[in-house]
Computed example of a mutant assay.
Amino acid sequence: MNNYLVLQTDFGISDGAVSAMYGVALSVHPAIRIFDLTHDIPQYNIWEGAYRLYQTISYWPEGTVFVSVVDPGVGSERRSVVVKTATNHYIVTPDNGTLTQIKKEIGIVEARIIDEKVNRLPKSGESYTFHGRDVYAFTGARLATGIITYEQVGPEVEVDSIIELPVSEAKLIKGGVTGSIDILDVRFGNLWTNIERELFKQLDIVYGDSFEVTIENDTRQVYKNIMTFGRSFADSHLGEPLLYVNSLDKIGVALNQGSFAKAYHVETGVNWTISIRKVQNISYN
Rank of each mutant, 00 (worst) to 15 (best):
80 S>L: 11
203 L>I: 07
159 V>S: 01
85 T>M: 01
175 G>E: 10
104 K>E: 14
150 Y>R: 13
223 Y>G: 01
231 R>A: 06
17 A>S: 15
135 V>Y: 05
21 M>L: 05
99 L>D: 04
112 R>C: 09
201 K>H: 10
69 V>M: 10
224 K>A: 12
189 G>Q: 00
219 T>W: 15
149 T>M: 04
7 L>P: 13
36 D>C: 08
253 V>N: 00
82 V>P: 08
118 V>L: 12
80 S>V: 02
62 E>I: 07
23 G>W: 01
195 I>R: 01
162 I>K: 00
277 R>D: 06
237 H>A: 11
159 V>M: 06
79 R>N: 09
130 F>H: 12
152 Q>L: 06
110 E>Y: 04
262 K>M: 01
120 R>V: 08
101 Q>P: 13
78 R>Y: 05
97 G>E: 06
105 E>D: 12
40 D>V: 03
57 I>V: 14
140 G>V: 01
197 R>E: 10
207 Y>V: 08
133 R>M: 06
53 L>E: 05
248 L>M: 15
211 F>T: 00
72 P>A: 03
22 Y>G: 11
62 E>S: 14
162 I>A: 01
78 R>I: 06
217 N>W: 14
248 L>Y: 14
188 F>G: 02
35 F>W: 12
151 E>H: 05
177 V>P: 03
77 E>K: 11
208 G>Y: 01
208 G>I: 00
35 F>M: 14
15 D>C: 04
28 V>Y: 11
26 L>D: 03
178 T>S: 14
143 L>C: 03
195 I>N: 00
264 Y>N: 09
201 K>W: 03
27 S>H: 02
247 S>A: 11
162 I>Y: 05
133 R>P: 07
251 I>M: 04
71 D>C: 14
60 W>F: 15
211 F>R: 00
88 N>A: 10
29 H>Q: 13
273 T>M: 11
85 T>A: 02
186 V>M: 01
213 V>W: 02
61 P>E: 09
277 R>F: 06
